[in-house]
Design a binder for these strands. Sequence first.
DNA 1: GTACGCGTATCTAGAAATTA
DNA 2: TAATTTCTAGATACGCGTAC
Length: 302
Amino acid sequence: MQDLNAMLVFARVVDSGSFSTAAEKLKLSKSAVSKQVAKLEDQLGVRLLNRTTRRLSLTEAGELFYARSTEVVAAAEAAEQAVTSLQDKPRGTLRLNTSMSFGQRHLGPAIPEFLFDYPDLSIDMTLTDRFVDLVKEGYDMAIRIGNMPDSSLIQRRLCDMQALIVASPDYLVRRGAPATPVELTQHNCLCYAYQATGDEWRFSGPEGIVRVRVGGQLKANNGDVLLEAAIAGMGIVQLPSFICGDAVRDGRLVRILTDYALPPAAIHAVYPHARHVSTKVRAFVDFLAKRFGSQPYWDKGL
DNA sequence: GTACGCGTATCTAGAAATTA
DNA sequence: TAATTTCTAGATACGCGTAC
């Protein structure tokens, strides 16, 4: 198998009829070009060019090799062009992973606007609340909610995420509203199964950091299931504002423990670390960052 | 004689492989 | 994992041969 680069250099020398001109075109020194051709001849065990200090001509073997080389070089350049054009503007398929609730509520409605601008691009979106292995499972990127663990993935913060402690008015009439986080232990708390801190809810209030281990009749790995249970009056739940914001605004849920702040968190775009991030990933991340902004629309009026 | 162009020797920088 | 060694590609300087 011959060195493709040496083959390209040889083809350029023949095309231009001179080592010097080929070197200039290839942005190499004359000696580098000379060495490449000499190496190629050594590998092939045959002389390709007859050269004097003033003239070049192809040997019989050189003519044969040149004809084949131009085909190979043209194919390589076509392949390079195909890949380069893929990077020029977003195209192909973007494999995307995100949580069920965020995907349904906020990504789904945003995607048509994005794809309208990029007709050569398609999106293959998978919704799951599980933390997938992007590299192993072949995803281009994921949108992840909450604080990110240390990882080799590239993370770009899209916007802040506000979490709220909420319950239905009906539940609060029946059970009373807790005045402090510690009182949550006396309530039916609905827990998110994939929460990083497990069943421990953390607050920052007048008395400092408060950690409370909560529990109740329902634990689920999906925010919308918890939302519906809370609206039905089942208990108290901690949910991101992008899930429960509408229910709070229209009165189906009521915020409680408003004197206590929950740990700050954010929504991130994450993608595998690579020397070159594809244009389709970069375009989609830019689009989301612009659409959601630092203070996203779902936080308005809360 | 001069200009031009190729080849060789030598040096350098960066990458890859090896070793502790 | 870091340090060291080896390999490779490319640049510069210079010599040589040929054309004008």
